[in-house]
Design a protein around this nucleic acid. Sequence first.
RNA 1: CGGGGUGUAGUACAUCGGUAGUAUACGCGGUUUGGGACCGUGAGAGCCGAGUUCGAUUCUCGGCACCCCGACCA
Length: 485
Amino acid sequence: MEDSKNAKSYEKTITPRATDYNEWYLDVIGAADLAEHSPVKGCMIIKPNGYAIWEGIQKVLDVEFKKKQVRNAYFPMLIPERLLKQEESHVEGFAPEVAVVTHAGGEKLEESYVLRPTSETIMYDVFSKWVRSYRDLPLLINQWANVIRWEMRTKLFLRTTEFLWQEGHTVHQAPEEADAFAREMLDVYKNFFEKYMAIPVIPGVKSESEKFAGALKTYTCEAMMQDGKALQIATSHNLGDHFAKAFNVQFLNEQNTLEYGHQTSWGLSTRSIGGLIMTHSDDKGLVLPPNIAPIKIVIVPITNESNHDAIVEKARELETILKATYEFGVTVDARPQLRPGEKYFKWEKEGVPLRIEYGPKDIENNSCVLVRRDTGEKIVTPLNELQQKVTELLSTIQENLLQIAKDRLVEKKVTVDSWDAFVSAIEQGQFVLAHWDGTAETEKQIKEETGATIRCIPFDSADESGVCIKSGNSSTKKVLFAKAY
RNA sequence: CGGGGUGUAGUACAUCGGUAGUAUACGCGGUUUGGGACCGUGAGAGCCGAGUUCGAUUCUCGGCACCCCGACCA
C-alpha cells in the first residue's frame, strides 16, 4: 500500500521549481516532453515540442537579422584540420573538445577533418576569397547549423555534445565599425530575450580569461536562473583582425592599399531553451511566455459521452475565431473519454499560456472561462469579448513573466565591499557586484575559493575607484560575479 | 581523466541460487467526465561475455553502458 502510494505520487507530482538541475530535467523537461537523452552519449534528441520552440526562436531572430542586412548561408560541417590550426589562440581554445574524422571511404584520410565546433575557420578561409574591395564590405553572413563540442560533462539543453545554434560572421572595414556591430548584435539578443523570452539579461564584457578563443573582446548576455545561478545565454565577439590575419581576409581600400578586415561573430544556441525553462518553470511544469509559445491557447471542451461531439463542434467555432489571429497557436483538446482535470494538467505541464474551458454552462451563458497559466486565475468572459480579452491577457501574461524575472534579478543582485560579504552572498546563490583588481590571478583565486566566476563587466558599471575585495589592490570598476551553469 | 554509484517491463522500484513481483503508463470492456476518477481484463522485463553450480537475473571475473561529484565549456 505504502509502495503503491509512493509510485503514484511520483508519476503525478512535479517536483518544486526548476531550481535544481536534476529535478528540473527529470520532472519538468522529462515530463514536458521537450527532449531526451539520445543513445549517443552527450547528445540530445529534441522532441517536436522542444523543436517547435526552437523554430519560434529562429523565426524571430531571422527577422531581426534581416533588419541588419544579415543574410543566411550554409558552410560545411567538416573542417580540414589545418584550417582550425591557423589561428593560434583559437586552436588552443578548442583543441580539447573537437571530434576528428580520420577515416572515410574505408581508408585512413591523408588529412583529417574536424567536426565544426564553430565555423570561424572554414568561413573566413572562404571570406578571404569573397572579400576583394572595400565595396564588398561589410560582409554580413549568418548560418543556422549544428556544431559538435566534445565536452566532458553534458546537461540536456545547457551543454550537449551536439547543439543547434545560429552563428553570425561579419567583416568590416574599420575596427570601430566591427566593435559597434558586435555591440549592436548583443542588443538584438538582449531585446529578443526580454521581448520574446521574458528573460531579463545583464549585458557586459567578458574578462580576458573568459573571452572567446581568438577574440579581441567578448560581449555577453548573462541571465539569472531561479536558483540564482548565471547562464551565459548569448555572446557576440569583436574578433579584431586576428582571424583576418590568420586567414588573409584583406581588401583594397579607397586609397588602393591592402588592409585587413575587422571581424565579428555572434551566436545563440539551443541553450537558450534551457534558460527559458529554468527562468519560468513552476511547480506544475513548464511556463512559456506567449510571445514564444508554439501553442498559445488550448481549448478544453467540457463534455460527457452524450454531448461530446456537439460541444467539441462548438469549441471548434472558438478555435476558428482565434485562429484568425493566432494561426497554429491555437488547439482544441478534443480527446474523448479523458476527464477535464487530466487535460488541464497536461497542458499546464507543457506551459501553454492560456487555457479556455468551454462546456454546457458556458454555452448556455454564451461565455467561456479563460485560465492563466502564470497565475492560475480564472476569468469568465462573454464570447463577444473573447478575441479582445485573449489578446489582452496574452500580453498581460508576457509582461507579468518578465516582471517576475526582473524582480528576481533585482532581489538577488547585491553589491559588496568585503570578502566575507562576498563569500556569503555567493553561497546564497546571488549575483554579486564587487571591485576586482583586473588580474587573472585574482579571478582564478576567487573561482577556486568560492566557485564564482566573473560573468561580465556590465556596461552600466560606472567608473569609480575602489579596492579589490580579494587582493585589496586598487580597482576602477565593479564587476559581476556569480556561480554559473 | 580522478572519486563514487547503478544496470530487472515504456517508466519508477522490489524480490530471490530453483514460478521474477508491485505501482504507474499502454490495449480492450464497462461506469464516469467543470482539476490527475473507478471496476474488470490483457499484453509487456533480467546490458553483454566467461566462470562457479545439478541449476545464475542473483555469486565471481571481464567488458559495455548510464548516472552523480570534480577539472573543461555556449
